[in-house]
C-alpha cells in the first residue's frame, strides 16, 4: 500500500507573513513549516499503511528554494520518502499550474492512493485536489472524514452539511481529507533523527518534462487583481436575560446555521 500525500510548506501562520504588494502574493522567503491541514492527511496515510502492513507514505511537495523544513516534520511523523519539486520558473504558479506539477510528480510514484488536504491554509483555493485527479484521469472523493481500504476499493465517508455520504472509489484515486478528523501524531525523537536520512528526491521542471512557459507567472491563467486587509472583528452582541434570552440565543445560532 503506497500512499502519496501532497503536502504544502507554508510560512508559519503564528508569525503572520507579509504580502508582496507588486505580485499580490504571500512572501515565501521565510522559514516554512508543514501546513497543519496536511498533517491530517499524513496521519491518515500512516494509519492506512499500518493497517495494510506493507508499503509507505510518500510525500509530494512543490516549494521555492528546495525548502525541506516542513517535509522533515512529516518524515519524522513516519513518512518514508519525499519528492520535492522546486524551480525558479514556478514562482507565481496558480492553482492549475500547481496541480500540473504535483500530478507530474505523482506519476513517478507507484501510488495506490493519493491524499490531499481539502485546501491549503495560505492559498485556500480548494481546487488543486480535483485538478490533480482530472490530470491523472483518476476518480476523486472530497471532504473525507475517514478512508478504509477494502481490496481494490477505497470506502470513503464524505462529510456533508447534514452528516456524511458513504462512497466507494476504485483504486488508485485522489481523496481530500478534512482537517480535524484524525489526531496527527507528534514526531518521536527517533523519528526526528531518522528523518534526516530519509530520501528526498529533488526535481526541477526539466526533470518532470514540464515546459516553464506553461507554469509560474508565464503560464498563469488566474490573476490576483487586488488584495485587501481582513476586516477587524466586530464587537459581539450582549444579550441581557429578560426571560427570553434562551430564545434569542437559539435564534442567533439558527441564523448562523449552527443548529
Amino acid at each position: 500500500m503506497n500512499v502519496v500525500v501532497c503536502v504544502k510548506q507554508i510560512p508559519d501562520p503564528a508569525d503572520p507573513g507579509q504580502m508582496d504588494p507588486e505580485t499580490r502574493t504571500l512572501k515565501r522567503d521565510v522559514k516554512l513549516i508543514l501546513d497543519e491541514s496536511d498533517s491530517y492527511g499524513v496521519e491518515m496515510g500512516l494509519q492506512l499503511v499500518d493497517a495494510a502492513g506493507e508499503g509507505e507514505v510518500v510525500l509530494v511537495s512543490m516549494v521555492p528554494n528546495n525548502e525541506v523544513s516542513g517535509l522533515r516534520t512529516a518524515l519524522a511523523m513516519g513518512a518514508g520518502s519525499a519528492v520535492l519539486v522546486s524551480d525558479e520558473a514556478l514562482a507565481g504558479s496558480d492553482a492549475l499550474s500547481t496541480a500540473k506539477v504535483l500530478a507530474a510528480a505523482i506519476r513517478r510514484c507507484e501510488a495506490d492512493l493519493i491524499i490531499t488536504a481539502t485546501e491549503s491554509s495560505d492559498g485556500y483555493t480548494g481546487t488543486v485536489p480535483v485538478q490533480i485527479a482530472e490530470l491523472l484521469d483518476l476518480p476523486s472523493a472530497t471532504f473525507a472524514k475517514s478512508i478504509e481500504i477494502d481490496g481494490d476499493v477505497a470506502k470513503v465517508q464524505r462529510q456533508t452539511e447534514d452528516g456524511y455520504d458513504e462512497i466507494e472509489c476504485s483504486l488508485p484515486c485522489v481523496v481530500s481529507v478534512t482537517a480535524g478528523v484524525v489526531e496527527p501524531r507528534y514526531p518521536s525523537f527517533k523519528g526526528i533523527m531518522a528523518a534526516k536520512n530519509k530520501p528526498v528526491d529533488e526535481l526541477d521542471l526539466a526533470a518532470l518534462g514540464i515546459d516553464p512557459a506553461t507554469v509560474g507567472w508565464a503560464g498563469a491563467r488566474q490573476e490576483i487583481v487586488d488584495i485587501a486587509e481582513a476586516p477587524a472583528g466586530e464587537a459581539g452582541e450582549i444579550i441581557h436575560d429578560e426571560g427570553d434570552a434562551h430564545e434569542r440565543i437559539l435564534a442567533f445560532l439558527d441564523d448562523l446555521k449552527i443548529l
Binding site: 522533515r72 519524522a76 507528534y186
Partner: peptide, 14 residues
C-alpha cells in the same frame, strides 16, 4: 538542527 526540532516538538505538544 535536530535538537531544535526535538525541542520544537515538545514545545508544540506543551
Amino acid at each position: 538542527a535536530l535538537a531544535d526540532e526535538m525541542v520544537d516538538a515538545v514545545r508544540t505538544w506543551v
